[in-house]
């Protein structure tokens, strides 16, 4: 017994080291990007205030370029507004028909809600990168809201939020994938978009059919199948940078240059899909076969 205690006394440092490493390895191995986002969201409730202050200082030095970008955006929106004014003049002729539409029905037709937020922390050098926004649950942010730039470029989606802050899983996250298609491809073939961790300006689009019409410089947009982003609106991902056949010569592997510079994000738009939970729940029940069980009991 004495010898055992003496032996343990001699090796307790090694034992302690192995215990700490094992616990850390277990936590790391069992963590997903969702758990990492949740830890970050919790940490932001403590350090988020300091991040905001630092962001304010950094933001001060970029005000002039931001003003220029806003002026350009205002000009663009003005021209779009003019278009709608002209279209509105025609539609006013059919006002009586519109008046008959039930207002409750109109409310039900609104599927998406938009809100703006500012980036207060952002990483591009990890395997799984996250963006922290200065809007949280108390501002109406909920997990699974899509995030785009004011120019309509894809950024990511909200994974977790605290009261005042939210954490976004960005395109530069190796565990995040979405689907995209090439604008101008009449066949509408869809490829899988993911980041390989090398460049913060490029992502890969794999498994794109060999029959797709794709050339360098073509625009790549979200396929519309993702529930994070508005259906029917082309959320831009980027532009084709290189195209090559995969090893088996069965499909194209495309390198896509991102439209948004994710290392210099400032303002972003959050998109809430009111139908997200309903659609996702339905899809999950179909995937797990639960809907069949439901039919049997009926």
């Amino acid at each position: 017994m004495y010898k055992l205690i003496e032996f343990l006394r001699r090796i307790y440092i090694v034992v302690l080291f192995l215990v700490i490493e094992s616990v850390a390895l277990y936590c790391y191995a069992h963590s997903t990007y969702h758990t990492q986002a949740k830890i970050l969201a919790r940490a932001n409730s403590v350090v988020g205030g300091a991040q905001s202050v630092l962001y304010g200082i950094r933001h001060y030095f970029t005000l002039s370029s931001e003003n220029r970008a806003l002026a350009t955006r205002v000009a663009q929106l003005e021209s779009e507004l003019q278009y709608y004014r002209e279209a509105g003049a025609i539609e006013r002729e059919n006002q009586e028909a519109f008046a008959q539409i039930d207002s409750v029905l109109m409310e039900g037709l609104v599927q998406y809600r938009y809100m703006s937020a500012r980036v207060i922390a952002n990483t591009v050098h990890h395997r799984n990168n996250f963006i922290t926004l200065n809007r949280g649950a108390m501002h109406g942010v909920t997990p699974n809201m899509g995030v785009i730039t004011p120019e309509g470029n894809m950024v990511g989606y909200v994974a977790a939020c605290s009261d005042r802050y939210s954490v976004v899983v960005s395109l530069l996250n190796m565990d995040f994938s979405t689907s995209g298609k090439v604008v101008g491809d009449d066949h509408n073939y869809v490829g899988s978009i993911s980041w390989n961790g090398s460049s913060p300006y490029k992502v890969d689009m794999t498994e794109l059919s060999k029959y797709a019409d794709v050339e360098v410089g073509d625009e790549v947009v979200g396929s519309g199948a993702s529930h994070y982003f508005p259906a029917g609106v082309n959320i831009r991902i980027g532009y084709v940078d290189a195209v090559r056949e995969n090893e088996n010569h069965t499909s194209y592997d495309v390198v896509v240059r991102l439209a948004a510079d994710l290392s210099r994000l400032d303002n972003v738009i959050l998109v809430e899909n009111f139908d997200y939970n309903e659609v996702s729940g339905l899809e999950e029940s179909v995937a797990s076969g639960q809907y069949l069980l439901g039919e049997e009991t009926n």
Binding site: V23, A24, L25, A43
Partner: peptide, 11 residues
């Protein structure tokens, strides 16, 4: 805890 990593820095 501050950066959202789950054990990487501890290791």
């Amino acid at each position: 805890m501050a950066t959202g990593q789950a054990g990487l820095n501890v290791m």
